[in-house]
Each structure stands twice: as C-alpha cells, then as structure tokens.
Design a protein around this nucleic acid. Structure first.
Lengths: 174, 174
DNA sequence: AAAATATGTCAACATGGCTGACATAAAATG
DNA sequence: CATTTTATGTCAGCCATGTTGACATATTTT
C-alpha cells in the first residue's frame, strides 16, 4: 500500500484523490454504475444496427407520446442535426411515426409504432431488472433517497421540469 | 414483472412508459442526473482542448497513482487504441508521466504531474460541489443509500473490484 | 529456446456529437 | 395583408472517440 513515494512532488494523498475521500468515491461510483447500466441494451441495439442515440430517442418518445421535435431536443441537449440523423432512421425503418400537430400544424408529433414499442420494451427490460435488483438489495427507503439525490444532481434550472417529467400523465397539452 | 399484453393500439399508459412507473422513472432520473453531472467539466476541458476521454484518464490516474495501462483499460472498458490516443496527448503535453515498472519492466506506470494534479482538481471541483449539495439536500442517510444502490447497479462480476477501488489505499501491489 | 504478456503503433472505419447555411410551411404580429 | 417569427428539415463538412485487425518490441514466464 502506500504508493512508491513517486515522482514529481508530493505523494498523492493530500486531498483531491487517493484514498479516503467520500465525495470522490461517490463520484467514481456514479461512473461505474452508469458504465454498466448503459451497457445492458447495447447487444440488443446491435441486432437492429442501432446505437445508444437511437435508444434515447425511443425511450423518450415512449415516455412522451406525441412529443415534439423541439421538446425532444431540449431533453437530449443535442443539436437538431444530430437528432435528425437517428430520428430519420427510426422513422424510415418504422419504429417511430410522425403526425402533424392539430393545433399547430408546423409541429411533428412523435409516436412509437408497434415495432417501436416492442423495441422499447426489449431495451428497457434489462435496465429495469438491474435497477429493481439494486433497489431491493438496498432495502426499503433506499429508493426515495436514491431518487432525491439524483433529482438534486440535476441543474437547478432544469429540476422543476425534470420533476414534472418523471411523474406525469403522457405529455402535457398539445 | 409481467409485461402486459403489449399494445399495438392502446394509448400508451398501460405499463412500459407514460406515467406511474417507478422503475422507469428511476431510470430516467439517472439519465438526467448523469447528463447534468458530466456537463460540469466540459468548459474547463475545452480550455485545454481536451474532451471527456481525457477527463476519465486524468481522474483514474489521479485516483490510482502508478496504475498500469492494462488496469486503466479494464476500468474504462475501451480498446487500447482508443486509450492510446488520449493518453499520448496527456503525456506529450505534460499532464501524465510514465515510469517503467520496477518489478515488471514491461509495465508503464502512470502518474499525474503537477499540472495533471492541477487539472484534476479543477475538473473535480464542480462535480464534488454538485454531489455534496445533492447529498446534503437529501439529508443524512441518503449517502449510504445512494452508494449502496450505485454499487448494486454494477455488474455482479465487477462489484468486488469496484468496491475495493472506491475505498482503498492508492493502488495495490506493484 | 520458445511462448506468453504488456505495451505501442499504423491504418481504416463507424457513431454521434458539432457548426454553418439555407429552405419550407405555418403561425403570429403589426 | 405583409412581414416576421417559429418549427422543422436538410446539405455539407468537421471532430472526438469508439471500433477491428495487423504487426512490432521488450520483457517475463515456461
């Protein structure tokens, strides 16, 4: 233990890293958890020749049937050109359908098709199982704490919106 | 648990998505939290013309002074060619230093230089602040729950290793 | 001496971000 | 009603970072 006394300057253990830093450990845990969490659907996506970008779109369209392109962009925080690439493929191959908005005919409301819903369920299944197992192992009460911390990690400006998004009827108005 | 009769017709609200699904909500929260969490260091990285890949390397070298290339690859789960690209830049520009292993002279042990430590601290600061604030808001006990759930999200095969990694003296033997 | 291991490197390719420019249709506005 | 703004789409090209496959070198292990 005790790293070799090492090169240039202080042996690292003063503060920002090395051992015993609860905060850094929490940050690192988030990396590992997320790394494995997002690895689940990759094999399924590969069957379809899709990537993680497609997964995100399928997920959020599933969660927000009738979502507009603008809303989706706001969630994903990517450019419309980036979104267009994957969205086009999802539409061409029949996983996502568009409908012209009724109030505002400029909008393209997005929905999953039957195939899209099937894909979504396949992708979600392993992630749901993983989270369910983790929450169960962590015991009762862990879920609330877990959710609270995650929500608090979100940018202040976005927290209200996220809060609404994660528990609500299908979409909003339209 | 029981994937409901699927759909094809019904307005989505039966299970996989829409409202009222605690598990799906938790998954989505993880997306939003991670989205904002990793956005913090981006501006700092841009100053150096570095990307997130560089951040990851700096972080794990900081946390594991003297780590070998093979260990780093195992953590990051990328190919050595991918790692080589960013590692080379970090070394050339003086943020990471290499040393030949003393027991095994084939190994290249990695360390942060003084500049590397400085960069690491700059990058870590906003993330530490964000996590600290979130844990505080969530109240006492939240941290343990949070850590437990994250650890349980990790692949079974990797959990022991991650456990050792997040709380331990610098590296192992070498 | 031979095989295995740790690392590095070259080349080519894919995904999914990005910027900038421009086009169209529909809605909103004065 | 003419003009402007908004929602969306699209073309072209660039960049970061992931991938595979092949091969080279030094060192350790067998």
């Amino acid at each position: 233990m005790v790293v070799p006394a090492k090169s240039l300057g202080k042996p690292p253990a003063d503060r920002p890293s090395a051992a015993g830093d609860r905060l850094t450990e929490a940050i690192e845990l988030l990396f590992f958890a997320y790394r494995d969490f997002i690895s689940d659907p990759d094999e399924i996506l590969a069957e379809y020749d899709f990537g993680r970008a497609h997964h995100r779109v399928v997920h959020f369209v599933s969660r927000n049937p009738g979502i507009t392109v603008a809303e989706l962009l706001n969630i994903l925080r990517i450019t419309k050109q980036s979104l267009a690439r994957v969205l086009k493929q999802l539409i061409e191959r029949g996983f996502v359908a568009q409908e012209t908005g009724k109030q505002d005919r400029r909008q393209r409301l997005l929905y999953l098709t039957a195939s899209g819903r099937e894909l979504e369920e396949r992708l979600a299944a392993p992630q749901r199982a993983r989270v369910a197992a983790a929450l169960e192992k962590a015991g009762p009460g862990a879920e609330d704490a877990w959710r609270t911390v995650l929500l608090e990690l979100v940018n202040d400006e976005d927290r209200t919106e996220v809060e609404h998004r994660i528990a609500r009827a299908p979409v909003e108005q339209r």
